[in-house]
Simulated scan of single mutants.
Amino acid sequence: MNDTPIPVFDGHNDTLLRLFLDGTGRAFDVFFEGGAPGHIDGPRARAGGLAGGLFAIFPPSLRDPALSTAMAASPYDLPLPEPLDRAVASDATLAMASILFRLEERSAGRLSVCRGVADIEAAMAAGRLAAVLHVEGAEAIGADLAMLDVLHAAGLRSIGPVWSRPNIFGHGVPMRYPSTPDTGPGLTEAGKRLVRRCNEKRILIDLSHLNEAGFDEVAGLSDAPLVATHSNAHALCPVSRNLTDRQLRVVADSRGVVGLNFATAFLRADGRMDEDTPLETLARHLDHLLTHLGEEGVALGSDFDGATVPCAIGDAAGLPKLLAHLAGAGFGRELVEKIAWRNWLDVLGRTWER
Rank of each mutant, 00 (worst) to 15 (best):
M1N: 13
M1L: 11
M1R: 14
F9P: 13
G11C: 10
G11W: 03
N13F: 02
N13G: 09
L17C: 05
L17R: 05
R18Y: 01
L19R: 06
V30C: 11
V30T: 15
F31V: 12
E33K: 14
E33V: 07
A36E: 09
H39D: 15
D41T: 05
A47H: 14
L50G: 03
A56I: 04
P60V: 00
R63E: 14
A66C: 08
M71H: 04
P75I: 09
D77T: 10
L78C: 09
P79I: 08
L80M: 15
P81T: 08
P83G: 12
R86V: 13
A89L: 07
S90P: 01
S90L: 15
D91V: 14
L94M: 05
L94D: 03
I99D: 00
L100Q: 10
R102A: 07
G109T: 11
G116D: 15
V117S: 08
A122K: 15
G127Q: 11
R128P: 06
V132Q: 07
V135S: 02
G137I: 00
A138N: 07
D149F: 14
A153V: 10
A154I: 15
I159E: 05
P161T: 11
S164W: 07
S164G: 14
R165W: 12
F169Q: 08
H171S: 12
Y177F: 15
T180R: 09
T188Y: 03
E189Q: 15
R193N: 05
V195R: 00
R197M: 00
C198L: 09
N199R: 09
N199C: 12
E200P: 00
I203H: 08
E212P: 04
G214M: 00
V218C: 01
G220H: 10
A224T: 08
P225D: 05
S231E: 04
N232D: 13
N232L: 04
N232F: 01
L248W: 06
R249M: 02
V250E: 09
V251P: 07
V251K: 06
D253C: 07
S254W: 07
G256A: 10
V258N: 03
N261Y: 05
A263K: 06
A263N: 08
A265I: 01
A265K: 11
M273G: 14
E275V: 03
E275M: 05
E275R: 14
D276C: 08
L282W: 01
R284V: 04
R284Y: 01
H288Q: 03
H288L: 01
E295L: 01
E296M: 03
L300F: 04
D303M: 04
V309S: 00
P310T: 10
P310V: 01
P310L: 02
A312Q: 14
A316W: 12
L322Q: 08
A324W: 03
G332V: 13
V336N: 07
I339F: 05
W344E: 02
W344V: 04
V347R: 12
V347F: 11
L348E: 00
T351G: 07
T351A: 06
